[in-house]
Structures are given as C-alpha cells and as structure tokens.
Simulated scan of single mutants.
Amino acid sequence: MFGLSNPQRFMAFTGPLAPVLWAAAGVLLAVGAWLSFSVPADYQQGDTVRIMFVHVPAAVWGLGAYGALGVSSFFALVFRHALADAAARAAALPGAALTGLALVTGSLWGQPMWGTWWVWDARLTSVLVLFLFYLGYMALRASIDDEQKAARAAAVLGLVGLVNLPIVKFSVDWWNTLHQPASFLSPGSSGLDPAYVPAFLTMLAAYGVLFSALWLSAIRTEVRRRRVVTLRARRALEA
C-alpha cells in the first residue's frame, strides 16, 4: 500500500485496474437491477420497497466515501502527501452524489410510508449534515486560489466531518427516531426477508465497486492535472 503512495507507481498499477472496476460495476448493477425487479412486492409497502435497493447502498457508500475522504485528509495534513490530498479531493464529488441520492430516495420512500417527504429526524438530519460537509469541502477548495492553502484548509474540514459519521450510524440507537434501525446483520433484529437478500447484497457490492471505479478514475485524473500544472509552471519559468 505504501509503495503505491508514489504517484508514478500508483498510475502504473491502477492503469489496468480501472477498466476492470468499471466493467465489474456495470455487470453488478445490471444483475442487481434485474434481481431488484424480480423480488416479490412487500405485503405492507408494496413495490415501494424496491427503493431500498437504491437508497440503502447509496447511504452506506456515502458514509464510506466520507471515511475515505477523512482518512486521506489525515495523511495529506499530517504527512503532506500529495497523492493522499488527491485521493481526498477525488472522493468528495462521488461521495456527495451518493449522499444526495440517499437523501432523495429516502424522501421518495418516506412519503408513502410516513406521510411526509421530510422530518427533522436524527438520522435524516445527520445525513443532511454529511451532505453539507461534502459541499463545504468542495466549496472551500474552490474558494482559495493557493492550492496548498486550499488543501490544508479542506483537510482540516474533512477531519472535522469524521465526527459526524458515528452520529449518522448510531443515531437510530441513541435517539428515539422515526427512521427504522438497521434490519440487516443487526443484533436482536428480525433481519431482512431472505427473498430480498440476494438483490440487496448485489446492489451493495455494485455501489461499492462503482464508487471504487469513480474514485480511482478521479484520482488518476487529478494526478494528470497536477502534472500538467507543474509542467506549465516549469515552462513558464524557463521562458
């Protein structure tokens, strides 16, 4: 892992890996979508339950993406590692997209189940705060012209946002919330209906591989961008 912290070795290693991840994501999404529409409707929620196969994986990997952003920010801030900073920056947009998708699909699922599009529930509010951290991170980087200063300021914000992750995860346990607790691999829970497990796990894996493909491609793009910036700066100095 630390050997890949060298940008040149990282680019050489991930070059063949990126297409494999994109292909795997496409296959998993296709299979997951087919399974999601093949499962029977829920006896209470009807076909609305199918939103689960989009909403839950998006929420899970929205959290995972911010974890990647936060850990990368730590290495960028403490060790001043350029590739870690590129990884943190690359995780922001996919993570924001996944979290935004979780919020939208959650509202679509909540309206027929709860009778309202939005409530200031602990889980919903903490996920909204997570989304705002993503937007704040990207806005902060864009608002500072000096790239090094922008990277340091954004890294601090990225680390602060890590505090919100356990709040999102355990909000349904710590407070009396409208949002249901975890129904899969949760101690004391009745668990997810076995008919839904293959579709759920496939979509969860599909979103994970898709995020990996997006993140890896974005890091590679960021590395190329920085190389171009550095090359232009050298040519300007030579001129």
Rank of each mutant, 00 (worst) to 15 (best):
G3P: 08
S5D: 08
S5N: 08
P7D: 02
M11H: 10
T14N: 03
V20N: 07
A25S: 14
G26Y: 13
V27C: 10
L28N: 10
L28H: 09
L29C: 03
A33G: 10
S38M: 08
V39K: 09
V39G: 02
P40N: 12
A41D: 14
D42C: 08
G46Q: 12
M52Y: 10
A58L: 07
L63N: 08
L63D: 04
A68T: 15
G70V: 00
S73M: 11
H81M: 06
A84D: 09
A87I: 03
R89F: 09
G95A: 10
G100D: 10
A102C: 13
V104Q: 07
L108M: 01
W109A: 00
G110I: 13
M113W: 07
W114I: 02
G115A: 06
G115F: 00
G115Q: 01
L124H: 13
S126A: 00
V129K: 01
L132H: 12
L135C: 10
Y137W: 03
M138L: 14
A139K: 01
A139C: 11
L140C: 11
I144G: 03
A151Q: 11
R152L: 12
A153I: 08
A153C: 07
G158H: 11
L159P: 04
V163Y: 05
N164M: 01
P166K: 15
K169N: 12
F170K: 11
N176A: 13
H179L: 08
A182F: 04
S186M: 08
S186H: 11
P187I: 02
G188K: 06
S190P: 05
L192D: 12
Y196I: 11
Y196M: 13
A199H: 08
A205S: 12
A206C: 13
A206E: 07
Y207R: 03
F211Y: 15
L214R: 04
L216I: 11
A218V: 09
R225K: 14
V228P: 02
R232E: 15
A236P: 02
E238V: 05
